[in-house]
Amino acid sequence: MTDSNDKKPAIPMKGFRKGDLRLASYSRELALIGLTLFIVALFSILYPYSFCSWDNFNAILRNLAFEGILAVGMMVLLVSGEFDLSVGAMASMIGVITAWLMKVAGWPVPMAVATGLALGALAGAMNGVFVAKFRVNALIATLGTMGIFQGIALLVGGPGITFLPESFSRVGQTELLGLQLPVWLLAALALVLHGFLAYSRFFRQLYYVGSNPKAARLSGIHVDRMQIFASAMMGMIAGLAGIVYASRIGTATATVGVGAELQAIAAVILGGASLSGGKGTIWGALIGVFFMALIKNALIIARVSSEWQGIVLGAVLVFAVALDSFMSRQKE
């Protein structure tokens, strides 16, 4: 406590400007953009026709919309110092429940969608209550609810609910300025969340909560409420992802979200979040998701077998985070 500044000097360094610090706090995002541009350049040279085309770029975006929506929600959650393993199962569950409501129960589409979103928020809030009120470790709590949600999804959805109403599936396949609607939805969601997380008083409390919950409580921030709110929002966003996916392919299956939670967490960590909370931006989440999708796409174009994709993505994640951690220790 006394001499912590022996390690990190409190004496002004020469040539240190205010801007440097701001830049430094975005180091992960900037490094990732650099790496992304490098890969784009490399593959544009190696595969000028198949890789470097509008169609391929569009395909990358189309495929990342689902995980992208999950990732921006996950970023908000990780900023508050929590995380959620159940989001993939939750997306599947809300997808099939919404589909069941419109197909089997015959509800009008908007009502079914609204109910689905509300159920997602409720399921998320449940996770939040377990973690914030009953102090169950987030890993355990959401591992448990993941099993529950996946089970419900299979019970309701069975082998899949197909031939969803035209008015529903048309929405997910509509194109605007050459991009599919889910992509636009992701962009809109990211923009709104970025605005909130960066500039609104309410959302900015999440950074304090994630950074030091005890100090946040003693600063008058309602830590429990904030965490439950973030979880509920994650639930609603996961539900949205599930509904959008079902709309895009016109079918709701109970397994669409399998593994998506880990993909989303990986992308968000890659984009600068920390499992111990208090760090990260929505831009970071988007860059992380895009980077992962890009690598996947590049591997497919290079005709690397699918077995290798997991290996490469895993290695990239571990390597990138290790490098970042190493670099930031060097700076000290």
Partner: peptide, 10 residues
Amino acid sequence: RKEAGLFLEK
């Protein structure tokens, strides 16, 4: 201070 007062990385 560190435990309950400060947001150290902020």
